[in-house]
Nucleic acid binder design. Structure first.
Length: 211
DNA sequence: ATTAGGATCTTCT
DNA sequence: GAAGATCCTAATG
């Protein structure tokens, strides 16, 4: 693949565990009325759909997960914890759900815009260091769900890798999930300071009832 | 540096 | 009705 070229759709026509590590170093950009913000992807997680208990698609298609069952190379955005969005890139052919969650990136372009969108970031490294932070920095939300990341006409696009050969890829368990917690389907670029810290799943303390 | 709690609402059981 | 692919702030060692 040529550097800076749009990634061809067939790149995504494989399980997320194959696509995920290869997305490291690729560039995600989003053009809005305010300008463009682009990040170099430094951390991802693979979700394998109906064979993966941690995947939103585990129990089959629903209104929320229908795009995961759709065409590869499209964007699956979900809303979580009552306030955050996270982005995935859909993998495998239509009918099979599989997706790569984009967990962190390093801002390459549009830093000023990204900072304005993320006033709570203390340093530039934090701007897209976490799946919801990345969405905030790039202004990704409901409107981007189902859009095509492989089309030249799209506002949100992924372009090919410029990863150098001396950067090593690491692999380990996924962050913040309760089922299939041991599967090593999180991938990141070794030593990159934008990679989000690992956190094991903590069940939220239930509201005290009765009394 | 690490930890604990709160915010907030959609989704599926 | 409960949990959740998270983040932020404040408090503590």
């Amino acid at each position: 693949m040529q550097p800076d070229a749009l990634i061809p759709r067939k790149f995504f026509d494989r399980p997320a565990t194959e696509v995920g590590p290869e997305l490291l170093g690729c560039v995600l950009s989003h053009r809005t009325a305010d300008g463009v913000v682009a990040v170099r992807i430094t951390e991802v997680e693979a979700y394998l759909g109906q064979s993966d208990p941690a995947s939103h698609a585990y129990r089959g298609p629903t209104a929320r997960t229908e795009v995961m069952f759709g065409r590869p190379g499209h964007v699956y955005v979900y809303f979580t914890y009552g306030m955050h969005y996270c982005v995935n890139l859909v993998c495998q052919p239509e009918g099979t759900a599989s997706a790569v969650l984009l967990r962190a990136g390093r801002v390459l372009a549009g830093e000023e815009l990204a900072r304005a969108r993320r006033p709570s970031s203390r340093q530039d490294l934090d701007l897209a260091s976490g799946p919801a932070r990345l969405c905030q920095a790039l202004a990704i939300g409901r409107a981007q769900n189902g859009t095509d990341a492989c089309a030249g006409t799209s506002a949100l696009q992924v372009r090919s890798s410029q990863r150098s050969y001396d950067e090593k890829i690491c692999q380990g368990p996924r962050v913040g999930i309760s089922s299939a917690a041991e599967e090593p389907w999180r991938y990141w670029i070794e030593g990159d300071r934008t990679v989000s810290p690992y956190r094991a799943h903590v069940p939220r303390r239930r509201e005290a009832r009765g009394k």
